[in-house]
């Protein structure tokens, strides 16, 4: 082998490559565990569990594969004494092993994922608190159906500064409807069902602490349901590019004890009922309290 490419057999490159790959594996993995998922506040802990299972499997595969890659680079670098390469290039047994092996690892993941998906996307329980989220550039309006549990009709021609959701007040169902802007309040330990529609472009409601994300698509109503299990105030984000103010389309989700929630409803909702002619007028005051 007289005419090797110049400098290509220097041991430095091979050793460096192995060491760098190993260092990357160690550092990237150590830092990974320092950044956990946001604190869980819903019943969707099983999604986290699946995430951790996949993290365990892929993490192990990542570490083992990269360590092995570093090792074979180090072990088979060209300048080692007596270096010989092998012509061996086929093994049906090996190839079959890793094909079937990969499938065997993936199949349980797929099925667990599908079962959880059905659970997440299944119909909401009947006792759920239902709210309609209306996305707009760049604010969230949360439309409460009021005591009758029915949303008043909306009509896009009625969108206005004082009627952000275009509520049609001639609809009897709209009489007790009211709206909160950039704030959503729901009781703890009761399923919450969020219907959603968009006034303009696509948005996505993202509740990082609740493992909830769903696009808002103009022209259709989408929905999601979950059960909050922890009280507190949480951030709501927009996760689908919706324009130049996408980054500041933020709201708050307030999870209250059931009794506090009822108190809060009687403090706030009736005011909206009393002032049914102007359903959107009061909520900002409500959110200030």
């Amino acid at each position: 082998m007289a005419d090797e490419p110049k400098g290509s057999r220097g041991s430095l490159q091979g050793i460096a490559m192995a060491v760098v790959i190993w260092a990357i594996v160690v550092l990237s993995s150590l830092y990974y565990v320092r950044y956990g998922v946001p604190e869980l506040a819903s019943d969707r802990g099983y999604l986290d569990n699946l995430y951790y299972v996949i993290l365990g499997i892929t993490g192990a595969a990542y570490i083992l594969y990269q360590l092995a890659l570093g090792y074979v680079i180090y072990r088979y670098r060209g300048d080692r004494p007596g270096a010989e390469s092998s012509y061996w290039h086929e093994s049906h047994k090996l190839e079959l092993t890793w094909t079937i092996g990969t499938a065997a690892i993936l199949i349980p993941i797929v099925f667990t994922g599908l079962i959880y998906w059905d659970r997440v996307r299944g119909p909401a329980p009947d006792d759920a608190v239902t709210v309609m989220a209306v996305g707009a550039q760049f604010q969230w309006d949360f439309h409460y159906p009021g005591a009758d549990g029915e949303f008043g009709r909306f009509d896009p021609t009625l969108y206005a500064i004082d009627n952000q959701i275009g509520l049609d007040e001639t609809d009897p169902a709209a009489a007790d409807d009211w709206v909160l802007t950039n704030q959503l309040v729901i009781p703890v330990n009761r399923p919450a069902r969020i219907l959603m529609r968009s006034k303009d472009v696509q948005h996505a409601i993202f509740l990082p602490n609740f493992r909830v994300k769903q696009d808002l698509v103009p022209g259709m109503t989408t929905e999601v349901w979950f059960t909050p299990v922890k009280t507190g105030s949480y951030e709501v984000a927009c996760a689908e590019l919706c324009g130049l103010g996408h980054y500041r389309m933020r709201a708050f989700l307030e999870v209250m004890e059931e009794s506090d929630y009822q108190q809060w409803l009687s403090d706030n909702a009736p005011a909206a009922v009393a002032d049914a002619a102007d359903p959107a007028a009061d909520p900002p005051t409500a959110s200030a309290e």
């Binding site: 090797e4 490419p5 290509s8 057999r9 220097g10 490159q13 091979g14 490559m17 594969y65 092995a68 890659l69 074979v72 680079i73 072990r75 088979y76 670098r77 060209g78 270096a83 010989e84 390469s85 092998s86 061996w88 290039h89 090996l94 190839e95 890793w98 094909t99 990969t102 499938a103 993936l106």
Partner: peptide, 22 residues
């Protein structure tokens, strides 16, 4: 993921038992 894994393993076994020029 299955054909992708096949590729990854085939590469690993190409590098193994080699005489790598860097």
């Amino acid at each position: 993921a299955i054909p992708s894994a096949v590729k990854a393993f085939n590469w690993l076994f190409t590098i193994a038992r080699a005489r790598i020029q860097f």
